[in-house]
Structures are given as C-alpha cells and as structure tokens.
Design a protein around this nucleic acid. Structure first.
Lengths: 365, 365
DNA sequence: TTGTATGCGTTATCAG
DNA sequence: CTGATAACGCATACAA
C-alpha cells in the first residue's frame, strides 16, 4: 500500500505538502495540488487512519455499547445513530451483546485511541458505577439509560408520560377498574411505565385495587400467563395496560383461548408499537417510541456537548415524547370511529405508505 | 491519559518491558510483571489502539458495510457478526445506509488503517466492479451478495432451494396452477427465488401459464396490488408464492377484503419467515432464512481465509440452507394436522419458548 | 531477563 | 507557498 511518502516522491514534493492537499489546506498552490492529486490517484493512495488518529489524537469515531438486544428497536436505534454519525463524517464502532457491566467496562477500555466518545445503552439500574467509570475515559451519552449518571448526558423515552397517556385514554373511554402487567423489576423502563400508570389513576381519583398490579417480565409468555391471574381478580378489571406490546399480545392470545372478547369484556393496551401491533386481532392500542430518533438524538447530543466542551459541561437529559396510537383493542367509547388512528384507514391509503416506508426491505434474506 | 512511558517510569522499567507485560510475553520475570501491573492499574493505563494498529499493522477490527436496511434481518445479521467477531477478540466498525456503490467505495477507502477486512452486503447486481475494487484494499467476504465477485469469499442464503421447497410443498398439496409474485428486477434474491419456483414446476411437469408471473417489488403494497392481477387471471391460480413475506401479507389483506378465502380458494406462501408471519390470519407458510447465522458464517469465513492466506487463496462460496415453515396459509391437503409446524402447537408449549427466545427484549423502548 | 533504538504513517511547528 | 523534522504511542529487532 502506498504511503504519503510514496506520493510525495512521485509528485516531487514533501510529505507536508501532500498532507496539506489531503486536508484541503488553502496554503498550497493549485498547480502543486493537482500534481499531488494525480500522483495519489496513480498510486491508489488513501491516508492511513491509524496514523491520523495517532497524530491528531482523535479518531473520528464514536463507539456504541449495547446490551444483547434483538428486534426492531435495536436495529432502528443503530440506524439513527449511524445516520447522525455519518452526517458528521464520523464512523461507528459497534459493540453489542454485553452480558454484564464488567464486560462493558473492559471493552470500553480496550477502545482507547480508537474512539472519541461513546453512546452507551445500559438499561439495568445496577450499572451506575460502571458508567461513571467509563465516562472518565470518554465523553459518554446514555441512551435510554437505566440510571442517571451525574457526569453524562442522556436521552430517553418518555416512558412515564406514555403510560400516563394510554391509561388516561382508557379512563376517558369510561374504564374505572384498570390493571397493569408490570415489566421486570430491575428495568427502569418498566418502573417508569408503572409510575405513569399510577399517576394517571391517581389524577383521575381512581384507586388500584389489591392485585391489580400483576408482575411480568416483558416476554410474551409472561403476558400469556398473566391472563389467569387477571381473570381471577374480583372485581374483575375492565381494562389492562400491559407494559409492553409483547406481553399485550401474549395476553390477548390467552384471552382469545379463554373466550374473553377484546375489547368488549376486557380492553387491552400495550407499549412500544412494535410492527406486530397493527396486525394482531384486534389491532393493539399502544404507545409509540421512536428508536431511530432516539439514536439520532443521542449522537447529536454527543456532538453538541463535545463542541461545548470549552464552555461549562452541564450534562443535559433529553426526553423523547411518546405518542399514543389508538387502534381497536381498547374499543372506542361511543362510536367506532371516534378516534381513528392512521393505520386504520385501510391498506391502499396512507397506512400502506407508512408501512412501506417503515418496513421496506429491498433484500430478500 | 497515561502512556506506556508513564507506566515504565512508575514501574522503574523500560517501555519494552511494559509492552511485553501487556502482551503476556513469557520473557519477563514475574516479579517485574507484577511491578508493571501495579503501576498500570495505579495510573489507570490501557494501551492506545491507534498506536498499536500503526505499529503492528493490524487493527483487530472488521468493517461491515451494509445498504440501508430495516428490520429484523438487519439486526439479526449484525448480532451474528458481532458475536463471531467478539469470539476472535476483534471489533466491529459498522457503516450502514449506503445508497449507492460509489458511496460504499469511498467509505471503504476511508477505512484504511482502521480495519483488517470487510464484510460487505451488496444486494444489487450492479456493484460487481465496486466490490472487486474494494477487495484490492482488504480481504472481503460478501454477505448474501447480489453478484459473484471472483476475488472474494461469499456466504448466501439458499434462495432458489427455499423457493423450490415451498413450491414443491404446494404441488404436494395438490395444486397445479401456481402463480408467483416476483421481487424487484435488479435484486438477486428475487431472481433466485424465481428460479427455484420455475424449477419446481418444471420438475413436476407443470407449466407456467401466461401471466402467472406477476411483478412486485418486495413491498407490502406491491403484494396488495398484485391481488387484482391475480384474481383477474383465467384460469385462476389455486396457489400463489409471494417472493417475500411482506408481499404475501399485503396480498392476504387484499384477498381478505375481496372476500377470497385463504387457503380454501387461494393458497398463499411467502419467504423469509419474518416475525409477523406467524401472527397474520391464517398464519403464513413460508421459508426461514437465518440472518444471525448468515452473519456469523461470514465472519468465520473471513477468519478462515485470513489464516489460510499463506496457502492458496481460493474464494469459497457457502450457501446456508433455507427451511420450509409450514403453517396454515396453504392448507394442509387431507388432514388439518398433516404437517404441523412447531409454532402451531399452541402458546404455552414450545411455540412460546421459541418466540420468547427470539423476541425477548429486556428493554422497553 | 531487560534496555536501546528504530520504524509505523500522519500531522503540525517551524524555518525558509 | 514549501520543506525539514519532531512528535504521536507502541512493538520489536538487536544488544547487553
């Protein structure tokens, strides 16, 4: 592979000049620049990134640390990150599937010299110290964090507000006995959604009868299993908010087997708006969280705080709004079309357009 | 940040010794090693990756170039890649959302010095030259490539065979007039699936009546729109193979609106086994392509060929088997449970376990 | 077993 | 406008 020296020699100039040309420096005669460019093309030269990093002390690369995630949320977040990073002409160094915090920190350390900063997603609350530790090495932005770290910026989804919205929706539809299927206990998203649930009920002057807060773990199975508990409650709830869509779908399938009609006998709502949500019967009323935007914002926030490093570094915390998506799994109070969601307009209209935009997949695989 | 020099000074040794300790060299007295380690911990030192890369001339990093992909396939492929890369103690430099080949090549060039090789996914047939170009810089493994490049290894999905299987399944169920909704014309997955379709019919001595090969573009909308064409055919087909699940689902929704019963009046099959496939009504018979494994294999193949560099470099091409997943959208010939798929066993049994494994998402968002 | 010295490919600081 | 040359942080051949 050709180096800057080879180009310099071929162009009959010094390495300094070649370097200047490649950085678009104005301090070089255009004739000389052309010479250099010709030589570079001829030798198929491009600068060595490692050498640049070493010399300039920055890598033009952002690291991304993720837990072992599956599914749409993961890929959308990455897409958002990649998009925003690309806009800054940076690169993404991805490291996912981290089991525990210890592993995360060792990976983060091994990244020294290769990245300028990190986007970290640590959903469990136990990792506070680890995060602080990592943040000593690089500027860190937390993505939907399970914990607030004093020293770093963060961007997260309005879990509490989203839950609040959907529960308020149920209340507006006339429900007074509303249950929740909770998420895993260590998970902060779950905790926040529970908080929003409680707040909405409290605001409406409704109580939460004993046993109306059923435990779950975000898996479809736990939703399925919650049905039994749910149907055994007396008085029986008329509506239930499942803390995520997977559980809502599991629950609905159990209800269907038990011959309980949704939403007539029991209204069901979820959270996340996974792609499935609009296809189950009845289509699921839920809350949309935009993972793409979450990733994008995290990166923007990183660059903002990097640029403001000279000024006072005051860690911000952005919260992305969550949007209620009304479908039919909660009924619609008086009229069937009281509050139609976009997706309900029928396939050839706007709905399909949106589906296409979101789900287009030019590759077979 | 502490450098190797600081550690050397603090430990009272030379930088060479520190370097040796960090590489686990046996040529250092254990007492000295402890000294060094203590100093390193004390100074919170870890080696600078850029400097290492520059010195050793390798980056312990694999680049991953992807087109603008959404959805499960994307994230699963990345997971597989990440997993395999991690096993080799390498890192992943990800660059997705590439619109065209030109962009891809410029990104690839800019990676010089930062990566040791590339996993490239280029589904459109036009990029052959670009690939060859990139392969001059780094060893490249193609992931589900749209084109065979002479100089690099590749791993892809058995598109043709998968299509062959599902069409043969239709034939075994007694269908004789089978149509296809094709994928985009430039796309190699689509082409291969069409090939498998034709082959299965030919083998069975069945013809493809004029008009039975309907064009589509892998979007749900195009599947929806294909229904009209399909229902206008005389004689009308009794079964249709949609080249991917999105189109199959769009088609089924159109059929449902038109009052055409699936599978009684028209059997429908898809390809990909997207998560949705088991939730639509009726659950979709399709072909499963394992994206996780695809990514994993690509990486393994890269390391294999990197290690064999000394020996003759003969580009291999692996094809991952595709598996027929029988659900109910094609009916089941004589008996309803003639050939039940795992997913049909009912929620609390194995089916849900699998769903959980596949779709567990410990994070709210 | 340890230290010295050189090179890796760039950038950047000075002189010209 | 251009050219030497000293960093950048580490690995390693060679010497001791």
């Amino acid at each position: 592979m050709a180096t800057i020296k080879d180009v310099a020699r071929a162009a009959g100039v010094s390495v300094a000049t070649v370097s200047r040309v490649f950085q678009g420096s104005p301090l070089v005669a255009s004739a000389t620049a052309r010479q250099v460019q010709r030589a570079a093309v001829c030798l198929d030269y491009s600068p060595n990134g490692a050498a640049q990093s070493l010399s300039t002390r920055n890598a033009r690369t952002l690291g991304v640390l993720l837990p072992d995630l599956h599914g749409e949320f993961f890929s959308e977040a990455i897409r958002g990150i990649d998009h925003a990073v690309r806009a800054e002409r940076f690169q993404v160094l991805l490291s996912s599937s981290h089991a525990d915090a210890r592993e995360m920190i060792s990976v983060a350390r091994s990244l020294r010299g290769r990245i300028d900063g990190l986007i970290v997603m640590a959903p469990d609350a136990g990792s506070a110290r680890v995060i602080e530790d990592i943040a000593r090495y690089f500027p860190v932005v937390l993505l939907n964090p399970g914990v607030r770290a004093k020293s770093c910026c963060a961007v997260s989804i309005a879990n509490s507000d989203g839950a609040h919205q959907v529960v308020r929706h149920l209340i507006e539809l006339g429900h007074e006995r509303i249950a929740i299927v909770r998420g895993p206990s260590g998970n902060v998203d779950a905790k926040e959604r529970l908080r929003g649930f409680r707040k909405a009920l409290r605001k409406a002057g409704l109580g939460v009868p004993r046993g109306f807060e059923i435990s779950g773990d975000f898996t479809q199975r736990s939703g399925y299993e919650s049905a039994q508990t749910l149907l055994g409650l007396r008085p029986r709830p008329t509506a239930v908010f499942a803390s995520n869509d997977y559980m809502a779908i599991g629950l609905m399938s159990a209800l269907s087997e038990a011959g309980v009609r949704v939403p007539e006998e029991l209204a069901v709502a979820g959270f996340d708006d996974i792609p499935l949500a609009q296809y189950v019967r009845p289509p699921l009323t839920t809350v949309r969280a935009n993972a793409y935007e979450l990733g994008e914002r995290a990166v923007r926030m990183w660059f903002d705080s990097a640029r403001a490093r000279i000024a006072r570094k005051v860690p911000r915390h952005e919260v992305l709004p969550a949007a209620l998506v009304v479908r039919s799994s909660c009924g619609s109070g008086n009229g069937a079309a009281l509050r139609p969601s976009l997706e309900e307009a029928g396939p050839p209209a706007r709905a399909v357009n949106q589906i296409e935009r979101e789900r287009r997949r030019p590759l077979g695989g």
